[in-house]
Amino acid sequence: MKTTTVQNTFDDITLWNNMRESDEKSFSTLFEKYFSDLVSYGNSLSPYSEKVQDCVQEVFIDVWKYRKTLQSSVVVKAYLLSSVRKRIARLHERDHIFRKSTSTDSIAFRLEFSVEHELIDDDDYATKEKVAHLNNLLNDLPPRQKEALYLKYHQGLTVEQIADMLEVNYQSASNLLYRGLLTLRKEWKGTLSLITLLSSGTF
Results as ranks from 00 to 15, higher is better:
T5M: 14
V6S: 09
D11T: 08
L15W: 05
N17T: 12
N17G: 08
E21K: 06
S22K: 11
S22L: 09
L30I: 09
F31Q: 00
E32N: 13
S36W: 04
S40G: 05
Y48T: 04
K51G: 01
K51A: 07
D54S: 09
Q57F: 00
V59K: 00
I61C: 13
V63L: 13
K65A: 09
Y66A: 02
V75S: 00
L80Q: 05
R85Y: 08
R85T: 12
K86T: 13
R90P: 02
E93I: 07
E93V: 08
D95R: 12
I97S: 06
F98L: 14
S101F: 05
T102L: 13
S103H: 07
S106N: 15
I107E: 07
F109T: 00
F109D: 07
L111M: 10
E112Q: 12
F113H: 06
F113V: 12
H117G: 04
H117Q: 11
D122G: 03
Y125R: 12
Y125N: 11
K128Y: 04
V131D: 00
N136E: 13
N136R: 15
L137F: 13
N139Y: 09
D140E: 08
Q145D: 07
Q145E: 15
K146G: 02
A148L: 15
L151I: 11
H154L: 02
G156R: 15
G156D: 06
V159L: 08
D164I: 07
E167N: 06
N169K: 09
Q171T: 09
Q171K: 12
A173W: 04
L176H: 05
R179Y: 10
G180M: 11
G180R: 00
L182Y: 13
K186L: 15
T191I: 11
S193R: 14
L194A: 04
T196F: 10
L197K: 11
L198H: 02
T202L: 01
T202A: 03
